[in-house]
Write a protein that binds this DNA or RNA. Structure first.
Length: 742
DNA sequence: AACCCCTGTCATCCG
DNA sequence: CCCGGATGACAGGGG
């Protein structure tokens, strides 16, 4: 009973504050004994020193008899809502009303249970409460600067509680005053002085009244929402995203921190990050990562942490609010998550992920894993988490490898629902890709068959085959060669590069192509005569275009649907059902005893023999000859068109080559011109050297007509005058110039 | 509805 | 002259 009162009045207050800050501190560790009382199951979470806590509370003169059981359960309900404030889907009125009602009486000793981080257990008074006060005084930027602050804050909660319990310290209201006075002071923009030094007395005395029953704020809220709001049925809950910050922004209550001020602390944060209140801990030089972790691990063993983390995730998925040391860690992770978001934004990373990370509570291990990966992705420093959460005894990897925090599986799907919805699709796509490629590799299936499979998988109609990207043209050429064939005229007609294959390397694997060569004809014949060939692609038997619409025949059907109905009505055999072209129908209608493939693909001698072997009427003979003519002409048209295309592409290539050649020639020309220019310049310089003065001593210039510059065998040039005699030339001051032979 | 592309078909030419 | 291929032209379907 005492605990209930304690919880209702004190701890919840702290949890509310931290939750409103986005800290999402779970007070369930404190409620664990009570849960055991209520649920009869401890869930193996035995962290709270219940008896010591009660003893400590008893010494504080609390009123254990003034307990409202209904209020407790209501409190439990609201408590869950508070924990989900970061993505609030809470009946705002009920929640806020509860916030109002839960503020009566002395504030939580939990706030006062915090002790100095330095571990000065003996410190009393305001000093004992400094830990939480520091945390609540933290700004968002500071939180970003030191992601451990949250952990340390939580840790300090636990540690200080223990200390306080052990020592029977009085978790007095001064701590609460520290806490809430800080809020008030920060709202007013005052420079905050950490109560750690025990020098700030003024704001220790200001805040409690504001959260008392008779404060203006409380009265205002009660007046607005009424006390009966909490009794509203769940069905009347209104889906709202209104957070307390929104409420404050709307109400403009001067008693509470200014949201704008809070946002101004970290304007680079997301909007909902602004909801992180200034209660986030400030950076404290005394906070030591290792020390904090040791403190945490002093509370729980690593294995327990892992197990309980898993426990936490499992129960969280069930919508429960299991708490305990795991919650402790998860909340810490949540805080670091926010910190990483801040980091990432500072680093210019995308805000989407940060947003996701920020608003998504750590429901499960997947979330944590995604957070881990996200942090890695954002920071590019996979050791950041390890730095923040170092594991003792060199087991730094134990967490990431064995625990639900393992991050190898979740990289981008932060939202489990989204992941679950996308997973089948992704799996299907990937498996399809893998399977097809594996088939191609292992089974030797050709690209054509792969494309067939893909088309079969992709197409619901089977009429939109596209072989332009595959070597299928070879086989198609055979199909078309055998058509207007019954089975695959559609495939042949749907290809732009079907029959005309000459020169195509892709064709060589399947034959020489449909044009001309006896090889192709033979193969086409074999293919067309092979009934099992199309069984490899049974879907091809049910698809096809009919392009023989313009044939003048009384029974001709210009539309596909009538053709299909025609086939269904008139054709009896299964082979007849395979008829897809008009000539097919005609042949079956005229009871031609051989297939169109024969008619078209057979050489003329064999064809004539075939006709001679069968006693056919004139109409049948005419039809057979027309079928053959049309079939061959169709192939010829296809080849012709393909040839046209090839010609066009060849011309384009020729044009491109010619342009390249032209450009190259122009460049060579420019180079030659440049070379000529250099040679001229060189020659000019050489002339200047050879003939330094335009006038010699005889006032005569060295003209080419008068002088020569013969090149000796030693690559020397000697200026000689035609006018001079040898003796004169020797006597004259001729210049000797060494010339380098280029 | 107009336009474009593809395809089948016919008529014609040519080797 | 016949045959088969080539090709221009036309028509229809489909996007």
């Amino acid at each position: 009973m005492c605990l209930k009162k304690y919880l209702a009045d004190d701890l919840i207050q702290v949890s509310i504050l931290l939750s409103l800050c986005g800290v999402r501190v779970d007070v369930d560790p404190y409620l664990l004994p009570l849960r055991e009382i209520i649920q009869g199951q401890s869930s193996g979470l035995t962290q709270t020193h219940f008896h010591d806590l009660r003893n400590s509370l008893g010494r504080q003169g609390l009123q254990p008899k003034s307990v409202d059981v209904d209020g407790f359960f209501m409190m439990r309900q609201f408590q869950g809502w508070v924990r989900s404030l970061d993505r609030l889907q809470v009946p705002a009125m009920q929640l806020e009303t509860w916030l109002v009602h839960s503020e009566h009486g002395p504030l939580a000793s939990a706030a006062g249970q915090t002790g100095p981080l330095s571990g000065a257990a003996g410190q009393e008074g305001s000093g004992d409460s400094s830990g939480l006060s520091i945390r609540m005084g933290e700004g968002v930027e500071d939180m970003m600067d030191d992601g451990l602050g949250a952990v340390s804050a939580l840790h300090v909660d636990q540690e200080d509680e223990d200390e306080l319990i052990k020592e029977g310290a009085h978790a007095d209201q001064r701590a609460e005053q520290d806490t809430f006075d800080y809020v008030t002071n920060q709202q007013s923009g005052e420079t905050l002085i950490s109560p750690l030094d025990g020098t700030n007395n003024e704001w220790e005395q200001n805040g409690v009244e504001r959260w008392s029953d008779d404060t203006p704020f409380m009265r205002h809220v009660i007046q607005v929402f009424g006390e009966d709001v909490c009794e509203l049925p769940i069905a009347d809950r209104v889906e709202t995203e209104l957070s307390l910050q929104d409420y404050l922004r709307l109400e403009g209550d001067p008693e509470l921190p200014d949201p704008e001020l809070m946002e101004s602390d970290a304007d680079h944060l997301l909007a909902h990050q602004s909801l992180l209140s200034p209660l986030i801990p400030l950076e404290d030089p005394s906070l030591d990562l290792e020390q904090n972790w040791q403190d945490i691990l002093a509370i729980m063993e690593p294995q327990e942490m892992e197990d309980e983390a898993y426990h936490y995730s499992a129960h969280s998925e069930e919508g429960m609010t299991l708490s305990g040391p795991t919650d402790f860690v998860n909340e810490a992770l949540s805080l670091h998550q926010a910190t990483f978001s801040s980091f990432s934004q500072e680093a210019g990373s995308t805000s989407d992920r940060s947003s996701t990370l920020e608003v998504t509570p750590p429901h499960s291990a997947e979330h944590l894993s995604s957070f881990y990966n996200s942090s890695q992705d954002l920071d590019g420093d996979p050791f950041e988490i390890a730095d923040l959460f170092p594991l003792p005894g060199g087991e730094d990897h134990a967490l990431s490898n064995n625990s639900p925090f393992h991050s190898s599986s979740y990289t981008f799907l932060d939202e489990p629902a989204l992941a679950s919805s996308l997973e089948p699709l992704l799996r299907e796509v990937i498996l399809r890709e893998i399977s097809l490629e594996d088939l191609a590799v292992q089974e030797g299936i050709s690209q054509f068959q792969i494309s067939q499979l893909e088309e079969h998988l992709d197409s619901d109609s089977g009429l939109s085959l596209n072989f332009s990207h595959s070597p299928a043209s070879s086989s198609q050429s055979c199909c078309s060669c055998s058509s207007a064939c019954s089975h695959c005229s559609s495939t042949a007609s749907s290809s732009s590069d079907t029959a005309y294959q000459s020169g195509s390397e892709e064709v060589m694997g399947f034959g020489e192509g449909a044009v001309g060569g006896s090889m192709s004809s033979k193969m086409c014949r074999e293919m067309s005569l092979e009934p099992g060939y199309y069984q490899q692609f049974p879907w091809l038997e049910h698809i096809g275009h009919d392009h023989t619409y313009n044939q003048p025949l009384s029974s001709s059907l210009s539309q596909k649907k009538p053709q299909k109905s025609f086939s269904k009505e008139l054709l009896r055999t299964e082979d007849q059902a395979k008829c897809t072209t008009r000539d097919e129908y005609r042949a079956h209608a005229m009871r031609i005893p051989f297939s169109n493939e024969h008619i078209i693909s057979l050489p003329v001698e064999e064809f004539n023999d075939l006709l001679s072997r069968h006693q056919l009427s004139d109409a049948q003979l005419t039809l057979v000859r027309d079928i053959r003519r049309r079939g061959k002409n169709k192939m010829a048209a296809q080849n012709c068109r393909q040839r046209k295309l090839d010609t066009l592409s060849g011309l384009e290539q020729s044009v491109a080559d010619l342009r390249l050649r032209r450009a190259r020639l122009i460049k060579e020309k420019a180079a030659f011109l440049h070379s000529v220019r250099e040679m001229k310049q060189c020659l000019s310089r050489l002339c200047q050297e050879v003939f330094p003065g335009p006038i010699n001593d005889q006032a005569r210039s060295y003209g080419t007509d008068d002088y020569a510059l013969p090149l000796t065998s030693e690559h020397h040039a000697m200026l000689s005058s035609h006018l001079m005699t040898n003796s004169e030339s020797k006597s004259k001051p001729c210049r000797k110039q060494k010339l380098k032979k280029k």
